[in-house]
């Protein structure tokens, strides 16, 4: 298991190199002088010169690439032009909020989708399944930012049940009230992100579960005389959950896209809102920095799911 994990980590190296290469190329391919773009609109000539030096823009291409790698390995993601702070500082101040939202939203969405998907496959042919299918397809088709805005309009603006955005009230309450306040702010973004992830896992689990229940080993379990519940959960669901796990790993990046839009809608002070703000300010170093951090996080998370998969599915470990 340890060996498998190490191999997986080793396999991620080319991916990371490729990521760096791609961002490097993107900077080079940008129309105009990249130094001007990276420095921002009202930069001084000295600052532009400094950027040019840092990114090695005066050197031949290979030298530029070397400078680029060196800069990244030293943990330098450049200066954010709108914050006038190093990108790493800006990002590290926001990453916690994003993690909190993503963890809550994905857990709720994946859990709910999987459970209801399994339920729907059991209820195949009934009205309940049909209703779930319609709900699943509809949620699958609603753009998440619009869904978020509708939630804000009806539950926050009209009904005043929950706060419309942000992570805390202003002024921020103290003591036990702070916890409740934080939770109340967390509810709507979490629900939005969960509703966004839900249909993917609902559809996948339902499809996989229906397929698994026609497998021969299910017939074996029935022939043995195990109860339907045991057949379904122990012999069926375990097998159906394997692709769900793969899916979770594969689509983590896509889920984070949903998280970005959710944050933007609810002004949740995480990386997504940061990214949206950076777009508005044309703060290219910050956009690049957020992309790099998120991409590396996704690569690492994919490795984690793969290793987890090997724990669950005995067939993987051999290869």
């Amino acid at each position: 298991m340890l060996r498998y994990s190490l191999i997986r980590v080793g396999q991620a190296v080319p991916t990371l190199v490729f990521l760096v290469l791609m961002t490097f190329l993107v900077v080079r391919l940008a129309p105009g002088d990249p130094a001007y773009a990276l420095a921002g609109d009202n930069a001084s000539p000295q600052y532009i010169e400094q950027i040019r030096h840092q990114y090695g823009l005066g050197q031949p291409l290979l030298g530029q690439l070397g400078a680029y790698f060196r800069r990244l390995f030293s943990g330098d993601l450049g200066m954010s032009y709108s914050f006038q702070e190093p990108v790493t500082t800006v990002i590290s101040g926001r990453i916690g909020a994003s993690l909190q939202l993503v963890a809550c939203g994905l857990l709720l969405g994946i859990g709910g989708g999987t459970l209801l998907g399994a339920y729907a496959s059991r209820a195949a042919g009934t009205v309940r399944e049909a209703v779930l299918n319609v709900v699943g397809l509809t949620l699958y088709s609603i753009p998440i930012f619009w869904l978020g805005l509708l939630l804000v309009y009806f539950l926050a603006i009209q009904a005043h049940w929950l706060p419309a955005g942000g992570q805390y009230s202003f002024p921020r309450p103290t003591g036990a009230a702070a916890v409740g306040d934080g939770l109340r702010h967390l509810v709507l973004p979490t629900v939005a992100l969960a509703l966004y992830t839900f249909p993917v896992y609902y559809r996948l689990t339902r499809a996989r579960m229906s397929a698994v229940m026609t497998e021969e080993y299910i017939r074996t379990a029935r022939a043995i005389g195990f109860g339907e519940r045991r057949v379904f959960f122990r012999h069926g669901l375990r097998n159906a959950l394997l692709p769900v796990l793969t899916m979770a790993g594969l689509t983590l990046g896509q889920s984070l896209g949903g998280a970005l839009l959710t944050e933007a809608v609810f002004s949740w002070p995480g990386l997504g809102t940061l990214m949206a703000g950076a777009i508005g300010q044309r703060d290219l170093p910050l956009i690049m920095g957020v992309f790099e951090v998120v991409a590396v996080a996704v690569v690492l998370a994919t490795i984690a799911t793969d290793v987890l998969y090997a724990v669950v599915d005995p067939r993987v470990r051999l290869t």
Binding site: Y217, T220, A223
Partner: peptide, 17 residues
């Protein structure tokens, strides 16, 4: 009544020892 299934590859659950 017990059954011996064809091709025990698929007749045995792959994730159960």
């Amino acid at each position: 009544i017990a059954i011996v299934f064809q091709g025990a590859m698929h007749a045995l659950n792959p994730v159960i020892r």
